[in-house]
Design a protein around this nucleic acid. Sequence first.
DNA 1: GTAATCTACGTCAGAAAACA
DNA 2: TGTTTTCTGACGTAGATTAC
Length: 329
Amino acid sequence: MIAKERSIPEKILAKEALLSRLPPNFDYRPLIEKDLAKRKAGYRGEEFTDYYVNKLPHKDFTIIHDLRLHNGQGYFQIDTMIFSSTFALILEIKNISGTLYFDSKFRQLIRYKDDNEDGFLDPITQAERQTRELRKWLQQRNIFLPIEYLVVISNPSTVIKSDPQNFLAFKTVLHSHELLDRIEKLRKSFLKEKLTQKEIKKVAKLLVKSHTPEKSQVLEKYKLSAFSLNTGVQCPKCRVFPMKRIYGTWFCARCKCKDKTAHYKALLDYCLLVESSITNKQFRKFMQLSSQDTAQKLLKSMKLAHSGTNKGRVYYLNLSSLLDIRYSG
DNA sequence: GTAATCTACGTCAGAAAACA
DNA sequence: TGTTTTCTGACGTAGATTAC
């Protein structure tokens, strides 16, 4: 059973939204583009590995993609968690090309590529920490399950190396195409049943319910203010700002394109970049819309959750609902 | 307390789009 | 082409908040 599917991380959506609303010659643009490329590569690696993970027999394994839990002080994040009635498995997924060298002495990962040498945080250490955190989290809820971890290198052409004494790397690091065989071996080594089918469902529900998505806070990260952003509704065709609202549709003065729902994307951008609630006034300012009535009618038509009456009215922007509205509308 | 301001909501006329 | 539907903008009313 897949208890939680993987979805595009908010950090990727927010960076895309930010780039779409920054002037082309903006100073930080190259830095944001580089960060976005890195994030996207990581996400692609996770998706590539999901192909193998999702092949596991669903009656035997419960799969939770992209899990972020609170441990009391902070959060810990797991790329993929798989569990059965006998054991749990954490996957730490890395999409790094070139030759990777796992150095056990200094507990670091070194990547050799194009005559360059780059150091990375040791994914084995990361996975060990996640294992400790998850064990503690489950035990606090009276769930006792042996937990293993694997470091999955998603890129099949990546060369994996380590020093000969690094037994931990031999045991835990693998390419994604080896994953199913390795899980099968693990399954044979854990025979004692710890959870009933009913308990498995209960644990999955608890984990998914406790998942807290990471807020992007992309403006703070690059020390930008909302004033740096282009406001207005962006033309979906020629990408120009702003479209004008004319008789029930958004009209682009440049390419003459018309779109009835172009404000959905703008509202999604607002939610990703500014804040997750909006008033009529903020909506008008961001959409460059002069009519308060039109703003009210547009906000109402989207059936957003809201609180307050009259002057205190605030509309709440839910990211997943906005994504649904945007792609279905 | 009062005036000013902001917003929600309903109604209506006119304009544009959609449809037969 | 004529009719229907949808949307805007204007207007009025009412309630809540803010500034003085």
